[in-house]
Deep mutational scan, measured.
Amino acid sequence: MIINNLKLIREKKKISQSELAALLESSRQTINGIEKNKYNPSLQLALKIAYYLNTPLEDIFQWQ
């Protein structure tokens, strides 16, 4: 199971779900699903999230 700190990191950087979704060329619903652990992002999307949040991938997503 993958757990994530996306919501915590996103809020700390003062970025809304909609703003992050626009940067990622994704939907706000996708970001919401990832944050609620209802959806696991593809590797490509996970890497883009890490890039746009300027945060190491392993700080956002962790195996448990």
Rank of each mutant, 00 (worst) to 15 (best):
M1R: 07
M1T: 07
M1C: 13
M1Y: 07
M1S: 05
M1F: 08
I2E: 04
I2L: 12
I2R: 10
I2S: 08
I2G: 04
I3V: 14
I3W: 07
I3Q: 08
N4P: 02
N4R: 02
N4F: 08
N5Q: 04
N5C: 13
N5E: 03
N5M: 08
N5K: 07
N5I: 07
N5T: 03
L6V: 03
L6Q: 02
L6A: 00
L6W: 00
L6F: 00
L6I: 03
L6G: 03
L6N: 01
K7I: 07
K7T: 06
K7Q: 11
K7S: 07
K7V: 06
L8E: 14
L8N: 13
L8M: 13
I9D: 00
I9V: 11
I9Q: 04
I9N: 02
I9M: 07
I9A: 06
R10A: 04
R10P: 03
R10L: 07
R10C: 12
R10K: 00
R10H: 02
R10N: 01
E11T: 12
E11Q: 12
E11V: 11
E11G: 06
E11A: 08
K12C: 12
K12R: 13
K12M: 13
K12V: 08
K12I: 10
K13S: 09
K13M: 14
K13Y: 10
K13W: 09
K13D: 02
K13G: 05
K14T: 05
K14V: 05
I15K: 04
I15L: 13
I15E: 00
I15A: 02
S16D: 04
S16H: 04
S16A: 06
Q17K: 08
Q17D: 03
Q17Y: 07
S18Y: 12
S18M: 12
S18R: 14
S18W: 12
E19A: 14
E19V: 11
E19K: 14
E19I: 09
E19D: 11
L20H: 00
L20V: 01
A21V: 04
A21I: 04
A21M: 03
A21Y: 02
A22S: 12
A22W: 10
A22E: 12
A22G: 11
A22C: 13
L23M: 14
L23N: 07
L23K: 11
L23V: 11
L23D: 05
L23W: 13
L23I: 09
L23A: 15
L24I: 15
L24W: 02
L24Y: 01
E25C: 15
E25N: 15
S26R: 12
S26M: 15
S26C: 15
S26I: 15
S27M: 04
S27G: 06
S27E: 07
S27K: 09
S27D: 15
R28A: 14
R28V: 15
R28E: 15
R28Q: 14
R28D: 09
R28S: 12
R28Y: 11
R28W: 15
Q29S: 13
Q29P: 06
Q29G: 11
Q29K: 14
T30L: 15
T30M: 14
T30R: 10
T30W: 11
T30I: 15
I31H: 02
I31N: 01
I31V: 11
I31Q: 01
I31P: 01
I31W: 01
N32Y: 07
N32D: 15
N32F: 05
N32M: 13
N32Q: 15
G33D: 15
G33N: 15
G33A: 15
G33Y: 13
G33P: 01
I34H: 01
E35V: 03
E35Y: 04
E35W: 03
E35N: 01
E35H: 02
K36G: 09
K36Y: 07
K36E: 15
K36M: 14
K36T: 15
N37H: 09
N37E: 06
N37V: 01
N37F: 07
N37T: 04
K38Y: 13
K38S: 10
K38P: 02
Y39K: 10
Y39T: 10
Y39G: 04
Y39N: 07
Y39H: 10
N40K: 14
N40P: 13
N40E: 14
N40H: 12
N40F: 14
N40Y: 13
P41S: 02
P41H: 02
P41D: 02
P41L: 07
P41G: 04
P41E: 03
S42P: 12
S42F: 04
S42K: 05
L43Y: 14
L43H: 10
Q44L: 09
Q44D: 12
L45E: 05
L45G: 00
L45D: 03
L45Y: 06
L45P: 00
L45C: 10
A46W: 04
A46I: 05
A46G: 07
A46M: 10
A46V: 04
A46P: 01
A46E: 04
L47D: 04
L47A: 10
L47W: 08
L47C: 15
L47V: 11
L47R: 12
L47Q: 12
K48Q: 10
I49E: 00
I49G: 00
I49A: 04
I49Q: 00
A50G: 03
A50L: 04
A50Y: 05
A50F: 04
A50I: 05
Y51D: 07
Y51H: 11
Y51K: 10
Y52N: 05
Y52L: 13
Y52E: 05
Y52K: 04
Y52V: 15
Y52S: 06
Y52A: 14
L53C: 03
L53Q: 00
N54C: 12
N54M: 10
T55Q: 05
T55W: 04
T55H: 07
T55A: 08
T55M: 08
T55P: 03
T55F: 06
P56K: 10
P56S: 07
P56M: 07
P56E: 07
P56H: 06
P56I: 06
P56Y: 06
P56L: 06
L57Q: 01
L57R: 01
L57I: 11
L57K: 01
E58W: 11
E58M: 09
E58V: 09
E58F: 11
E58P: 09
D59Y: 10
D59S: 09
D59G: 08
D59T: 08
D59H: 11
D59Q: 13
I60N: 01
I60V: 08
I60L: 12
I60W: 03
F61N: 00
F61G: 00
F61M: 01
F61K: 01
F61V: 01
F61A: 00
F61R: 00
Q62P: 08
Q62D: 04
Q62M: 11
Q62V: 14
Q62C: 09
Q62E: 08
Q62W: 06
W63M: 04
W63I: 04
W63E: 02
W63G: 02
W63P: 03
W63A: 02
W63F: 08
W63T: 03
Q64N: 13
Q64Y: 11
Q64W: 08
Q64G: 14
Q64V: 12
